[in-house]
Simulated scan of single mutants.
Amino acid sequence: MHPIAWALAATLLILVLGVGAVRLLQDRFIYAPTREAPELDEPALARVSAGTITTEDGLRLLTWSMPPQRADAPVVLYLHGNGGNLGDRRRRLGRFAALGWGAQMVEWRGYGGNAGHPSEAGLLRDARAGLAALQAQGHAAGRIVVWGESLGTAVAVALAAERHGAIGAVVLELPFTSLLDLAALHFPWLPAPRLLLRDRFDSLATIPGVTVPVLILSGERDILVPPWMGEALEGAATAPVERWVKPDAGHEELTTEGGFAVVTEFLARRLDLR
């Protein structure tokens, strides 16, 4: 075989193997769970209790819940990112507690000791169960804030778009436009990612359906989810949107770099907190 033909054949083989690996192992690229159950082991989390909720497809999921200290305080439905488990978000609960807010952190299926396997449809079912639990506890819709982190932002957008009138505001921390856009950005050699990816998490297409105020938080130096994706979501939204970009922040630094204060001020105005 001619050397050029050998090179073309080798390139094609590598491409086919790469595409096959992505199709078979894509869940490992998208979801990075810590499967062990986290523990509530900090004095600052004394108001937090571990419990379970049941999804519409029958899974029992771990939740960490904390009641608000005042009837007019926000209650955050927190939907975390693709890595780790709830234990990596203890500091968030401590911040919520210090402000007197309530919170419900939902542990995804397949994470933190939960049964099941994560998927786009499955995570949305998990979020629905978390919202239903807050509603069953009697929290007013105008006080419920859906806060999504990274991958959780796509679930937050989908939940807010389908549950009109059930929430008061949405916070999107490090949001992306869609998983297809992320695949094109980080795996440019992939042909036709639209045909390869089962889970799409297409927030750009979904966010026009959100009717409550939205806050978008991005880091200017985020190399995983570039800030232009937050700008694109802002442009596609039809509800009131505010956007904050931290110039020197990456993908995991926003809440320690002023982001929490921005969220607090946003909610004080949008939810008319006193």
Score class of each variant (00 low, 15 high):
Asp199Cys: 11
Arg200Gly: 12
Phe201Tyr: 12
Phe201Lys: 05
Phe201Pro: 06
Phe201Gln: 12
Asp202Ile: 03
Asp202Glu: 06
Asp202Trp: 03
Asp202Ala: 02
Ser203His: 03
Leu204Pro: 06
Ala205Glu: 11
Thr206Ser: 07
Thr206Lys: 15
Thr206Asn: 00
Thr206Tyr: 04
Thr206Gly: 05
Thr206Glu: 09
Ile207Cys: 01
Ile207Ser: 02
Ile207Pro: 00
Ile207Ala: 03
Pro208Ala: 04
Pro208Glu: 02
Pro208Gly: 03
Gly209Arg: 06
Gly209Thr: 03
Gly209Glu: 04
Gly209Trp: 06
Val210Lys: 03
Thr211Arg: 14
Thr211Asn: 12
Thr211Pro: 00
Thr211Trp: 04
Val212Pro: 02
Pro213Ile: 00
Pro213Ser: 02
Pro213Thr: 01
Pro213Arg: 00
Val214Trp: 00
Val214Glu: 00
Val214Cys: 03
Leu215Arg: 04
Leu215Val: 07
Leu215Thr: 04
Leu215Gly: 12
Leu215Ser: 11
Ile216Pro: 09
Leu217Ile: 10
Gly219Arg: 09
Gly219Ala: 04
Glu220His: 15
Glu220Asp: 14
Arg221Gln: 14
Arg221Ser: 13
Arg221His: 14
Arg221Lys: 15
Asp222Ala: 03
Asp222Lys: 03
Asp222Arg: 01
Ile223Pro: 13
Ile223Gln: 15
Val225Thr: 08
Val225Asp: 01
Pro226Ala: 09
Pro226Val: 11
Pro227Thr: 02
Trp228Met: 06
Trp228Ala: 07
Met229Asn: 11
Met229Tyr: 09
Met229Thr: 14
Gly230Glu: 09
Gly230Lys: 03
Glu231Asp: 07
Glu231Gln: 08
Glu231His: 08
Leu233Asp: 08
Gly235Leu: 09
Gly235Ala: 15
Ala236Ser: 10
Ala236Tyr: 02
Ala236Ile: 04
Thr238Ala: 11
Thr238Met: 13
